[in-house]
Design a protein around this nucleic acid. Structure first.
Lengths: 207, 207
DNA sequence: GAATAGATACCAACTGTACGGTATGTATCT
DNA sequence: AGATACATACCGTACAGTTGGTATCTATTC
């Protein structure tokens, strides 16, 4: 899904370009430190266009979180691991996919909604709620496979599929923070490895 | 951060109050959204005092990260779990302590340096580095107990104590994000439970 | 131990500007 | 003709940082 560039004239409309700019710039600088002018410049549009499409900067934040939820859910919905028959294999393949994405520049693999949540959880509830829906909506797609795996293998666990799905998201988000602290993606991958190891152990798989 | 010396005698109250204000306000609003005036008002000092003690807002960010490292390391250094004989017990008791701290208002239990890292990792390397030192310095204190536990129990692991110590910090940081997304501390505690469960399994402890 | 000089710790008032947002325009659709 | 999709120019303010001041320490000298 190649993103239109500033050179190419048939790139998306201003609204879409602003949302994509927000994904990139906010992940680099944070939401508060990203100015409306920053976004307009990155998107190649004017402020008039910005405030035509978004009533306020906060409204853009909400729309960006929703845009993020849409694009990432499409990404994972189309991934090939869903074709695996064994639900546990699907869960583990999901983790492998997540790990494989982590690399290159920090802003390229980190999570927009995790970043925004940290900043605005108190001051902008509308953005926070949109971020929460993205995170937990995504976790819910994983929860189904975890629960299926648990039932299929007859695991009598003291944890719920819901909590384990949420835990995967916590590990990913936390890994991103360590990666940001050092600039080294390996720290995020390392935590995914521990998470995979944990899930294998929960399901009695030999490492 | 250096204790008051003869050259730099008892540092004014204002400096400490500003650092403590930063810990509170930045955890609520984020670093960029926290204005110097916010901090001065919270600390009950004037802007003149602020810029007497800190050359720039960024310098305050560095000092706040160092202050955080100091106060938290003192907190954990004085905790009673260090008296336990079994190193694995110390690791598990550390997790119990971490879990016990999580509760009340979000800004009261979340991590200043994790929050700041997310925001400034690209734009303010000095703050990022101070945050990284706080995070990984803390992880290192845990690493010692993990390594001792591993050697004591003769575990031939495919993971290092260093990576597991870092993973604990990732889980905590990630748990904080989920808690912020919902306002519910339980989500952070839940991830600590999974982490504890993981470590017990790594060391062959029956849940 | 008094006087003095310099450094430190603050305070109040100010400044330049970058920010979010607005007002108003025009071209292109339906 | 009206709505949509932009663009240009502008506005009030909140921001980080400055200036210039005073009070209070500390060190030194006589």
């Amino acid at each position: 899904m190649p993103r239109p560039t500033k050179q190419s004239p048939e790139r998306g409309d201003a609204r879409t370009r602003l949302l994509e700019a927000a994904c990139d710039v906010v992940r680099q600088k944070g939401f508060a430190a990203t100015s409306v002018d920053d976004l307009c410049q990155e998107a190649g549009v004017t402020k008039g266009a910005f405030f035509h499409h978004f009533k306020t900067k906060e409204a853009l934040g909400v729309a960006a979180a929703n845009h993020w939820a849409e694009t990432t859910s499409a990404l994972f919905a189309n991934a090939s691991f869903h074709e695996l028959d064994d639900p546990l294999d699907r869960v583990l393949a999901y983790l492998d996919l997540r790990k494989g994405i982590i690399g290159g520049e920090v802003f390229e693999f980190t999570c927009l909604v995790g970043t925004m949540t940290q900043e605005v959880h108190e001051s902008a509830p509308a953005i926070r709620d949109a971020c929460a829906e993205s995170i937990f909506g995504h976790a819910a797609t994983l929860e189904a496979d975890i629960e299926a795996a648990r039932q299929q293998r007859g695991i009598d666990a003291d944890w719920t599929a819901e909590s384990l799905a949420r835990h995967t998201q916590a590990v990913l988000q936390g890994g991103f923070i360590l990666a940001k602290a050092t600039g080294d993606p390996e720290l995020a991958r390392e935590s995914v490895d521990h998470l995979r190891n944990y899930i294998e152990q929960l399901f009695g798989v030999a490492g």
